[in-house]
Design a protein around this nucleic acid. Structure first.
Length: 120
DNA sequence: GTGTTGACCACAG
DNA sequence: GCTGTGGCCAACA
């Protein structure tokens, strides 16, 4: 079964335990590729993002109606390699709030990857 | 097939 | 600390 790069990203992302975060770098590495940017790209057009903004383009890559992953894809659990939150389509504060809620400690809008960084 | 863009990374200055 | 530059890979026009 051939999965799109996007799907693989989400699949890995779902494996990240609650209370932990991963980085675009690790994610891409786990996918056996170095396309961190592509991962970010995938998240940006993430059709399963439950906080997806109105900025939805043509998400013709997946059947959004069925959204099989739904809130199971914690796109808020992905951060930059430095631990910075980087970007979030629906706003960083939201991301921070959710992560804090899961037990992730955020200091100065950054995450301690030594403690909360998940590796595949 | 080519060129642009992207929620990035690493390095240089 | 900041900006600029080059590079990586995938999706899209």
């Amino acid at each position: 079964m051939k999965k799109s790069f996007n799907e693989r990203c989400y699949d890995l992302l779902r494996k990240v335990p609650k209370g932990k975060v991963t980085t675009y770098k690790e994610l891409a590495h786990a996918l056996n590729t170095g396309a961190y940017r592509a991962v970010g790209n995938a998240m940006r057009r993430n059709p399963y993002s439950f906080l997806r903004p109105v900025k939805s383009k043509k998400n013709q890559d997946f059947p959004v109606n069925k959204n099989p992953y739904a809130p199971e894809v914690p796109c808020h659990r992905v951060v930059n390699a430095d631990g910075r939150l980087g970007g979030f389509a629906s706003g960083l504060p939201k991301k921070i709030a959710m992560l804090k809620k899961e037990g992730v400690e955020i200091v100065n809008d950054k995450i301690d990857l030594n403690k909360f960084g998940h590796r595949f």
